[in-house]
Nucleic acid binder design. Structure first.
Lengths: 131, 131
DNA sequence: CTCCGTGCAAATACTTTGCAAAGCG
DNA sequence: CGCTTTGCAAAGTATTTGCACGGAG
């Protein structure tokens, strides 16, 4: 039903870039990565495609940190840790208890929960060593 | 040590407004609430004070939803549920399992975790009824 | 009197949008 | 050829900042 999508080399490149990094980039970062390879790429295109991917569920948004939206090409359920010192974002595998919490919360609120995102904040081991 | 702060009726009003609501307002909402009582209140002032409260740890930011930052005057540890239909934000008491997860994650990452924020997304019971 | 807090308007920063041209099928 | 995607630039939106003035201590 949503087969109305042409092939586009640039769209593919955007998705590839997002999937081939372990970081959790912003639209601008993706743009800068691709700019050298596709000199006529426009920032608007990156935004447009990222929004569409997000809508399609092909990628996931981590939300806005410091005014910029961060994306994650890895859509397997996992959580994130943000170092409040260096600002880096790390992946955290989901705890098995989560599904229990999930169900419990759903009942408590009488709501239909679709997803759950955990955000830890603290100091990463690298920054701890440096101090 | 940071006692260089004068009294300000407006600052107090902003904090009061934030604390006396169960919602999780944006800067603009706070501004609109106070505008009738303080007609010469400026939006910049609200932003300035909210940022300062956030920095002081007097209030907490829930992050940006739909391009607007939401604040919470309740700094006790609890989580949130966002209805992806109507956009409302509900409080969720923290699950007892959380502290276990907390510790486990801390060990897995070898990091020092300071805080943890869980964000559920789904459809709230009100919106479910309406459909 | 000396700083702090504020209004106001201008400036930023990020993101979205309109439109004509180029591309896919 | 009909529909999709793109570049470009202009428009939006939320937030921050500079500056001069009124108020607190």
């Amino acid at each position: 039903m949503n087969k109305r999508q042409n092939y586009s080399r640039k769209r593919e490149a955007i998705l590839d870039t997002l999937r081939s990094t372990k970081t959790h980039p912003t639209a601008e970062w993706v743009y800068l990565q691709l700019k050298s390879q596709y000199p006529d790429l426009s920032l608007g295109t990156v935004y447009r495609n990222l929004s569409q991917f997000k809508e399609d569920g092909t990628i996931v948004s981590l939300g806005v940190v410091n005014g910029q939206e961060h994306f994650d090409g890895d859509i397997s359920p996992h959580s994130h840790f943000i170092c409040s010192h260096c600002g880096s974002v790390l992946d955290v595998p989901n705890d098995p208890n989560l599904s229990i919490m999930f169900k419990r919360t759903s009942q408590a609120l009488d709501a239909q929960i679709e997803s759950c995102h955990i955000l830890f904040r603290g100091i990463c081991s690298d920054c701890m060593k440096k101090q």
